[in-house]
Design a protein around this nucleic acid. Structure first.
Lengths: 192, 192
DNA sequence: GCGATGATCGTACGTACGTCAAAATAGTCC
DNA sequence: GGACTATTTTGACGTACGTACGATCATCGC
């Protein structure tokens, strides 16, 4: 494995273990087995390496979750909603490190236009995917309005639960509880 | 105003403008007009000051939002859900700096048990409040199960939308879009 | 007025940081 | 195998960081 890849792994590891702000260039070198100066050679700067790591971790989580939820086939939107929650609550504990990194990505995004842009693009894509999953249609058939309404609601739920789980894994409800909550909250089908 | 307060203000300002990781003790001193050495005197360490600032900012946002949503009286849960979204989407743009700070609080919480504990307590309280608001009852009447189901759903939506808004303020849907999304997602009242 | 206590200030110390330049090594193409 | 590039290694440089220490200053009871 090249030092470039080693460094990225190491940076992700540090991201999870020490956090973005407390990770030093020497930490990454130590964690990856690569040499300190390789950071500059392969990534230009330590900041750049960390940002790359943070973004990769965030997109890995997105892919993992989407794959998990797509395996659960269901007939109607409501059943698919259940499948989605099951995938969400099932995936979160396994992927905690990735989630920690994702949260830090959002935090750092405010101060790095590049991170922010790419995270933004990821979010837009996620809204589309979420809507498509719940509706059970290909992404191409999801129009803008649907992505903005259904997609954004679903994605908010997902990222909101991720946040809660990151703060306190024990605070996650059961799937049934989540669905019951939704039922209480949702406006009646006829109303508006 | 005492330097202690000045430092806290300055730290919050830096938190928003430069981010947790890029803020130095000298930045805080400059932003607050206080003296560099006062950080040690009043807060023991720069880290401690930053953590205090991050937590204060996070709780200010919670208070602001709860106050906003409580002003909107409505008769049934669904109307209150609407009022809640209106308060949420109305409050978010004004309080963006606070939200940025909150996101950073979550990111830092992983590496500071004190932040984490207090944030956790805030989340638990928020779930209770959210459930009480939607149900239109005093917090004392909300039981654990309701907080875990309804409260956690609502809080997920809230924090999820905050996250989206922080990344891209333009991505927020309208209240009607959000409600329409909820309607699609929610399981039928009779079901499951 | 005067000591005592708490707050502010000036400064400097030690250090751990990110980065760079150049040497050393590995890899590649003819 | 020799020229050339890509990568790895070594070592160190300059600096900006957090913090500690002592001095100065305000406040207030007496």
């Amino acid at each position: 494995m090249s030092q470039r890849e080693d460094l990225l792994e190491g940076a992700k590891k540090c991201l999870v273990e020490k956090g973005y702000s407390r990770t030093t260039a020497r930490d990454i070198a130590a964690a990856s087995g690569a040499h300190l100066a390789s950071i500059g050679y392969h990534f230009g700067s330590k900041d750049n390496l960390m940002n790359t790591a943070v973004l990769e971790a965030a997109s890995e989580w997105g892919d993992t979750f989407e794959a998990a939820v797509r395996t659960a086939e269901a007939r109607n939107p409501h059943d698919r909603a259940r499948a989605l929650f099951e995938a969400l609550f099932g995936t979160i504990p396994d992927r905690r490190p990735m989630l920690l990194a994702s949260v830090q990505a959002v935090a750092q995004a405010q101060f790095d236009p590049d991170i922010r842009e790419r995270l933004d693009a990821g979010y837009a894509q996620a809204r589309l995917s979420m809507a498509a999953i719940v509706l059970g249609v290909p992404e191409e058939e999801v129009d803008e309005h649907t992505a903005a309404s259904l997609g954004s609601v679903v994605y908010s739920l997902v990222s909101g639960y991720v946040l809660q789980a990151v703060i306190d894994p024990g605070s996650l409800p059961t799937v049934d509880q989540a669905l019951a909550g939704l039922r209480t909250l949702a406006p009646e089908p006829g109303g508006n």
